[in-house]
Computed example of a mutant assay.
Amino acid sequence: MTVIDKAPTTTPYEGDVRVVRRRLGPGRRFRGAFWAGPAVVLAIWAAGSATGLIKPAILTSPWDVVIAFGTQWTDHDLLGDILSSLTRAASGLAIGVLTGAVLAVLSGLSRVGESLIDGPIQIKRSIPTLALIPLFIAWFGIGQEMKIVTIALISLVPIYVHTHNGLRGIDGRYAELAETLDLRRGEFVRHVVLPGALPGFLLGMRFAVTSSLLGLVVVEQYNATAGIGHMITLAEQYGQTDVIVVGLVIYGIFGYCADTAVRLTGRKVLAWRQTLEG
């Protein structure tokens, strides 16, 4: 009786694929992952300042920044400056996100809308928003309106572009399925198109948040009577580098917290995609 060796159930190639997946997969998330990178940067900054590798003339030490923060908080209106900057950024960002999303939907769901809207938006993309500030000053003056309009316009473009791409990139098989199920256009848009465009919208949100803070940093240099930019401008006049670093750190915390909030929201909202993709 001849004995036939049983062929291995797993080929070397399949085994290699499994190893590659283990190495390249997302792996397990650990608590505090969002703060690991900033913590490393802070540790390097502190170590460099303590050992003298980073001179105070180049970058103020972290402990001096903490002292300057306390001084600004107790002896000056740092809380008022923070709230003023947050109000400007939030107002401009809200207007930009709402306008960009509406324009993207109108352009992405209608060929007429795309012919009327997409061209001007693409022209705007080639013109830096910060270069329009002198024109905005002539239109709106040098007050709060100019600052909010600048932040709104600089936030609008990434929202529009990524949401529009998300709408245009939806798989055509979903449209065929909707026709098979005899879905109405409103139901198709509400249940298929908009959820399918949500990843693009959230990606645009991450860029919009960063862009809004970039605009905030610039516009607060123009005749601002309150805000982090106003504090930095005064510190520059008096040569207070530690206060300048305080303002930069606060801007960085604004951006990192906002980006983290968008990423966490995306994980919660897009959990259904992970389930479908396995």
Rank of each mutant, 00 (worst) to 15 (best):
V243H: 06
P62A: 07
P12S: 00
L53V: 13
P195N: 04
S155Q: 00
T225N: 11
R88D: 03
L214V: 15
I137Y: 06
K6D: 01
T150K: 04
Q122D: 07
A175N: 07
L42Q: 10
V65D: 00
A197N: 01
F201M: 07
V40N: 06
L132N: 00
V3I: 13
I117K: 03
F34Y: 15
Q221H: 08
P26V: 11
P199D: 03
A131C: 10
K124H: 14
Q221G: 10
V102E: 09
I159F: 10
Y256A: 13
V249G: 04
R185T: 10
P158I: 09
A258R: 12
G96Q: 05
A57I: 15
A43Q: 05
D81I: 04
T180A: 15
T11L: 00
R21Q: 01
E220F: 01
R125L: 13
V19D: 02
R168T: 11
V102C: 13
E114P: 12
Q221S: 14
P62M: 10
T225V: 12
G186E: 08
L156H: 01
I244E: 00
I54P: 08
K268R: 15
P120N: 12
A101Q: 09
G70F: 12
D259M: 14
E236F: 06
Q221D: 03
V192L: 01
L156M: 01
A224H: 02
L194T: 02
L83S: 07
F188H: 13
G141K: 03
I82G: 05
E14Y: 00
R22P: 00
G166H: 05
F254V: 13
S61Y: 10
V209M: 11
V19M: 03
V17Y: 04
M205H: 02
T163A: 11
V105P: 02
L167C: 07
E179M: 14
L135Y: 01
V217Y: 07
W73I: 13
G100W: 05
D171N: 14
R88Y: 05
L59K: 04
G252M: 08
M146W: 08
T129C: 11
R111I: 08
I154D: 01
